[in-house]
Design a binder for these strands. Structure first.
Lengths: 245, 245
DNA sequence: ACAAAAGTGTTAATGGTACACCCATGA
DNA sequence: TCATGGGTGTACCATTAACACTTTTGT
C-alpha cells in the first residue's frame, strides 16, 4: 500500500508578529549566503526533530534562529503542496542545509504576537540577519513563505476578535489610547475614541489605576491594567465577539 | 544539524460529520481484524503519498476507506505528539499495515459536513466496516482519534458560526424548520422559532419558493432555497457573526 | 499662548429576546 | 375531530454608531 511513501520531512515555520505601540511587524530572517550569493529572506523555520512535539519544535527553531524564547506560539495551518520547496531559487540553499534537498517538506505554520521592545532578536544558526518588517511591506520571501505569513495574519485577526490572543502586546500598565492603538493595528481600521472607551469599561476589560503618565508633552493619561478574570473567560456572544466599537 | 531527523511519516485523518435532519453523526471505521483479534474503531485516515497535496490525500483516503467522494474537506489542525501512535493497543494494527510500524506519524486533521442521505459509505481497504455514530455517543477510538474528533467538532462549530460551512447539509429545497434543525444540531441548543425566522428573512439568507411540502400529516410548510449571493459573502459584523437567534 | 493628546454624553437606529395562539393537512 | 408541525407580531431592553468640545500638561 505504501510503496509511494518516501517519508516526507516535516518542518515548522514561525510567523512572529511584533507590536511597537503603533503598527504590526513580522519577524524575518535573511538566510546565510551560499557560495557567495546572498541568502533569501524567509520566515524562521526548520525541520522537526524526531522526539519533539510540533509545539516544541516551533519554540526550539525560533530560539535557534532568532534567540527569541518564552513566547506563546499558536499552530494555525499545515502547508503541504508537493512543490512548495521545489523552486529553483530555493535549491542552492536547500543543497547546503538539508540532508535531502530534493525531499518534499510539509510545514506546520505557527504564529505568535510579542511586544517588540521585549526582544532583541539575534541571528544564529543559518540566519545571517534577523529583522522586523511592517506587515504592509513584506518583501518576496523564500519557498511559500509569503502565503504562510498572509495566512497567519488572517488567522491572527480572527483569533484576536475572539480575544484568544493579543493582550500579551500591552505593557503591564497602559493607557486607553495604547489599547485602542492595539485594536487599530491588528484590525487595521480606525475606531471611535468615545465608543471604544465606553465598551471597554462596560466589559470591565481593564482596571483603572491611581496613576498617570509622566513626562508627556500633553495632558497625562490615566494608566490601566488588564482585568485577567474577564479576559480568561471564553468570549461570550454579546460581549467582545461583537465588539465593533 | 539534522542527525536526529528520521523522516517522520505524515498522515491525514478525516472527521466526516453527517446530518440526518435531526442530529449530527460522525463517520467511523472498524479496522480489519489482525490475527483474529477484532480491529479498533477509528477515524478514516492513512499516510499521505509523496506526490499528492494534503487536500488530495484527505480526499483519496476517505474514498479508499469509505467510498465517499466529492465532498469538501477542510483542514483544521496538525497533531504531532511523538507518542500519538505508540500505544500498545495500536501496535498490532500498525505492524500489519505499515512498513515502519514504529515510525512517528504526524497527522493532519480534516473535517467535512455531509448530508447522510447522499452517501452510502462502503468499507474497503483496511476498513472492515463503516458506520455513523451520534456525536454524543462516540466510543473509544484508536490512537488519538478521540481528541482529533473533539477538536474537529469545536472547529466545525466555530466555522459554522461564521457561515464558512454548513449549508451543504440542506436539500436544494427545504423548510425553515429544517434550517432551524440544522442550526440546533450543530450549535447544540434550542432556538426560538419566531426569532429564527425573522432573522433569516432579514438576512435574506433564503429565497421563498412558490412550492409547499406534500404528503405530510400536518399543515404543509413552504419551501425555500439558499440565497447564494448572501452566503458567498464573507460574514460581516452585524450580520450572521452576531446571529444568536 | 500654543501644541498635543486626554477625557467626556446624548441621541437615534438597530438588533436581541421573550412570549402564545390560530392554521392547514392527513389520518 | 384530532394530532402534528406551520406560521405569525409586539413590546422591552441592550447595543451600536455618529458626533465636538473642554482639560491638562510641557515648552
Amino acid at each position: 500500500m505504501s510503496e509511494h511513501v518516501i517519508n516526507p520531512n516535516v518542518s515548522v515555520d514561525c510567523v512572529v508578529f511584533g507590536f511597537d505601540t503603533q503598527s504590526l511587524k513580522v519577524l524575518l530572517i535573511e538566510q546565510k549566503p551560499v557560495d557567495g550569493k546572498p541568502g533569501h529572506l524567509a520566515l524562521p523555520g526548520d525541520l522537526v526533530l524526531n522526539d519533539e512535539s510540533l509545539d516544541d519544535a516551533a519554540a526550539r527553531v525560533l530560539r535557534e534562529l532568532t534567540g527569541i524564547e518564552g513566547i506563546f506560539l499558536r499552530q494555525f495551518h499545515a502547508f503541504g503542496d508537493p512543490n512548495r520547496v521545489k523552486q529553483v531559487e530555493d535549491l542552492d540553499w536547500l543543497k547546503s542545509y538539508r540532508d535531502n534537498p530534493e525531499a518534499r517538506v510539509i510545514t506546520i505554520g505557527y504564529y505568535a504576537l510579542v511586544k517588540m521592545d521585549d526582544f532583541a532578536p539575534e541571528a544564529s544558526s543559518f540566519a545571517e540577519r534577523v529583522f522586523w518588517k511592517d506587515i504592509h511591506e513584506v518583501p518576496s520571501l523564500a519557498f511559500d513563505h509569503n502565503s504562510i505569513s498572509e495566512s497567519a495574519l488572517v488567522r491572527l485577526r480572527e483569533e484576536f476578535e475572539n480575544r484568544k490572543v493579543g493582550f500579551e502586546l500591552l505593557p503591564e500598565k497602559f493607557t486607553l489610547s495604547q489599547l485602542q492603538s492595539l485594536y487599530e493595528a491588528i484590525e487595521d481600521r480606525e475606531l471611535d475614541k468615545r465608543n471604544f472607551r465606553k465598551k471597554v469599561m462596560k466589559e470591565k476589560l481593564v482596571v483603572p489605576l491611581d496613576e498617570k503618565q509622566t513626562g508627556v508633552v500633553h495632558k497625562p493619561a490615566r494608566l490601566y491594567e488588564l482585568n485577567l478574570e474577564v479576559l480568561s473567560q471564553a468570549p461570550v456572544p454579546g460581549s467582545f465577539v461583537t465588539m465593533k466599537f
